[in-house]
C-alpha cells in the first residue's frame, strides 16, 4: 500500500461518460493484484471530501490505468484532470481475486462499468470467458478501453438491455446457458450491480461452481478503520451465524456462497 501523488499521463473519454486515466508508477504496478482498487483524492474545491474508490483496470509495464464512469460530482471532477496534473492516490487496496490454476476456466461476469477490473485478468490469464452485459452498444468498453488484449470471439458473450449489441437480455441468462452445457472445472469472477451479482451467486450455487464477487459500497477510508462499508458475511462462530466484514479491507472480493443478501 502506498500513499503518493501520481502525475496524470492520460485522461481520455473512451465511450460516452466513460474515461480512462493512466499514470506511470513502478511501485504500484509491481504491487497490484487482480481486483484491487485505489482511493483517489479528487480536488475540485467544491467539497469532494472523501477519497473515491476506483478499481485498477489494467497494468502494462509500469503504466497503471483506471477505467471509470462519470456518475456524480467526484467522477465528474476526476474527468477534468489534465495531463501533467497531480492526484493523491492511496493503494493498491483490498484483497482482490484469488490466483486460479490454469486448468480451471475463469468465467468473468461483468455488468456495465463492473468490467473495469477484468482487463488485468484477461491480460494475465489464458483460460477465461467473458460474460458482459450493459445497457447500450455505446457502453461497450472492450474496444477503446482494452483494445490491445488478444482474445478470440468465442471467448466473449455479450448482452445488452436494448438488443443494440449481442443478445437482448440479462448477462446472467447467458452464464446459465453456458453452465447448463458444462459446469465442470469452472470458477466465476464477477463485478457489477448488486442485483446482477446476487443472481450470479444463485446460479453458481445451482451449478456447484465457486464464485468470487467484487462488492461495491460507499466507502469512507478504504483501509478498514471507519467501518462505513460493510457486507454481511457468513461466519458460524458468531452468535447470529454472520458478521459485518469490511468491504474495503476484507474485500472487495468475497466468495458468493458466503455473502448474505438482504
Amino acid at each position: 500500500m502506498f500513499l503518493k501523488n501520481i502525475v496524470v499521463e492520460k485522461n481520455k473519454e473512451v465511450k460516452s461518460d466513460h474515461f480512462i486515466m493512466s499514470f506511470k508508477d513502478k511501485e504500484i504496478a509491481e504491487d497490484v493484484r487482480k481486483g484491487q482498487f485505489v482511493e483517489l483524492k479528487i480536488n475540485d474545491g467544491l467539497g469532494n471530501l472523501l477519497r473515491k474508490p476506483i478499481s485498477i483496470h489494467d497494468v502494462y509495464e509500469n503504466k497503471v490505468s483506471l477505467l471509470y464512469k462519470v456518475i456524480g460530482k467526484g467522477t465528474k471532477a476526476l474527468s477534468k484532470y489534465k495531463k501533467g496534473e497531480e492526484l493523491s492516490i492511496l493503494g493498491p487496496l483490498g484483497n482482490g481475486f484469488p490466483n486460479i490454476a490454469d486448468d480451471k476456466e475463469i468465467l468473468l461476469v461483468a455488468g456495465g462499468i463492473g468490467f473495469a477490473p477484468f482487463s488485468l485478468i484477461m491480460r494475465e490469464v489464458k483460460n477465461w470467458k467473458l460474460f458482459y452485459g450493459f445497457r447500450d452498444a455505446s457502453e461497450f468498453l472492450l474496444e477503446g478501453a482494452t483494445s490491445d488484449i488478444h482474445y478470440e470471439n468465442e471467448q466473449i458473450f455479450i448482452t445488452t438491455d436494448n438488443g443494440s449489441m449481442g443478445t437482448k437480455g440479462f448477462v446472467t441468462d447467458k452464464l446459465e446457458e453456458y453452465l447448463r452445457e458444462n459446469s465442470q472445472n469452472k470458477i466465476i469472477f464477477s463485478c457489477g450491480p448488486n442485483i446482477m451479482m446476487k443472481k450470479v451467486a444463485e446460479i453458481a450455487n445451482q451449478y456447484n461452481v465457486v464464485s468470487y464477487l467484487s462488492l461495491e459500497e460507499y466507502m469512507g477510508c478504504g483501509i478498514g478503520v471507519c467501518a462505513g462499508c460493510v457486507a454481511k458475511i457468513k461466519n458460524p462462530d458468531k452468535p447470529d451465524g454472520w458478521e459485518f466484514k469490511k468491504v474495503c479491507k476484507d474485500g472487495p472480493v468475497f466468495r458468493g456462497d458466503e455473502i448474505i443478501w438482504d
Binding site: 467539497g47 471530501l49 459500497e217 460507499y218 471507519c226 467501518a227 460493510v230 458478521e243 459485518f244
Partner: peptide
C-alpha cells in the same frame, strides 16, 4: 458489536455523516 445496517456513511458539503 456488529453495528448498524448499511448504508452507514455519506459525504456532505465539507463533511460526512456516519
Amino acid at each position: 458489536r456488529q453495528g448498524n445496517p448499511m448504508p452507514r456513511i455519506i459525504e456532505t458539503s465539507g463533511g460526512m455523516l456516519n
